[in-house]
Amino acid sequence: MPEFKMPTALDQVTAEWLTEALSRRYPGTVVTSAVPGLTIRATGTKQRLMLDYNDAGHEHRLPPTMWFKSGLEEHSDHVRTSHARESLFYAEIEPLGLLNAPHGYFAGTDADGNSAQLIEDLLGRNARFGAATRAVPLAVAKATLGMLARLHAHWWGAPELARLGPPGGSLATDGIVIRIMTDAAWDDALRREGAVLPPEFQTGAQARAGMEKLWAYDRTSDALCMVHGDAHPGNMFFEQDGAPGFLDYQRVMQCDWAHDVNYFLIASCDSDDMAAHERDLLEGYLQEREALGVPLMDRDEAWLSYRRHTMYGLVWNVVPPAMQTEETCLTISRRFNAAAARHDVARALDL
């Protein structure tokens, strides 16, 4: 039987290809019509599809719309592992119900390393999508940390983590973070109105050194787990009752648990709320994780790791406008700059 190949261009996402993909999980399904809709080209390639099926497809209650996602951009070869991680998530992790995520109808990676997924269209749930300008309330933050605790506990310190690549994942290995933290970009960030960065991070070289030191800690961490990897507000959605969920699993990786917890809380929540409540929220997360069987963690060590991981969020000072809106970058970078001073990040990293 010939290998099932993933599309390498959008015109290959045909009714025939969709039939073969969907029938693997939903036997007997035939896609009788596939009409492409909105296409979004960014880190990955996403296209909304309007579908119709034979009787078997309708009996499986397959939806009239879903999203095709893959890496079909010029830069995709540099981040191919991230698309494979997303296929792994939708094939093996999403069905476990550890966190609220879009349902995956198909996920695969072929022998050439090309990956593709067919993912639930959340408009069918009337979901609201996250935005940095709408700070996450404390009660929702607590619920979100509960989801992350379940994800982190699942492969805590387990051999399966090796399937996710080295600690720090593609954030460290594909070089994109260091490439955008140029001296010129950092100088521009310092000149923005209202930009207040700690004195230890006034140059691009200082910022890059801090990032490398953080990754060095992650590589030697004894508290590694599977993390979402990119848990900022733009990758969140909310049900009609306000319940949170996460999108975009391209950065799923093994890392120190604090990567997710710090990145989510500081990027998504009001700075004053975090200054007043982040230690309580962290304690709640640790208790939830321990209730799932993860060994007890020294609270001072946990707080130190949380503080260290504020370093990663400083990259928002230099995120290019092609990747995020200026308003989003300003909102999130100000939250991380305030947290970096509050957490004395340079001292936490022993810089």
Results as ranks from 00 to 15, higher is better:
2 P>M: 08
2 P>S: 14
5 K>S: 14
18 L>N: 12
31 V>R: 03
35 V>L: 05
38 L>K: 15
41 R>H: 07
42 A>K: 10
49 L>K: 02
52 D>Y: 01
55 D>Q: 13
56 A>R: 09
59 E>P: 00
60 H>F: 01
62 L>K: 05
68 F>G: 11
72 L>G: 13
76 S>Y: 04
77 D>K: 11
77 D>L: 06
79 V>I: 15
82 S>R: 12
91 A>G: 14
91 A>C: 04
103 H>L: 07
103 H>T: 13
104 G>V: 02
106 F>N: 03
109 T>L: 04
111 A>C: 10
127 A>N: 08
130 G>D: 10
132 A>Y: 12
135 A>L: 08
140 V>E: 15
141 A>V: 03
141 A>Y: 06
145 L>N: 14
148 L>N: 09
155 W>V: 02
155 W>I: 02
159 P>D: 11
161 L>C: 10
162 A>Q: 11
162 A>S: 14
163 R>P: 00
164 L>Y: 13
169 G>E: 09
172 A>M: 03
173 T>N: 07
175 G>A: 08
182 T>L: 03
190 L>R: 15
196 V>L: 05
197 L>A: 15
199 P>L: 05
200 E>N: 05
201 F>P: 03
204 G>W: 03
218 D>I: 03
221 S>D: 07
234 G>V: 03
235 N>P: 01
236 M>P: 00
237 F>L: 06
241 D>W: 00
244 P>A: 09
251 R>L: 12
264 F>Q: 08
266 I>K: 06
268 S>I: 01
269 C>E: 11
271 S>Y: 00
275 A>E: 13
282 L>W: 06
287 Q>R: 13
288 E>S: 14
291 A>Y: 01
296 L>I: 06
298 D>F: 02
309 H>W: 10
316 W>T: 12
316 W>H: 15
316 W>D: 11
316 W>K: 06
322 A>K: 10
329 C>T: 13
332 I>A: 11
334 R>F: 01
336 F>L: 05
340 A>N: 05
350 D>W: 01
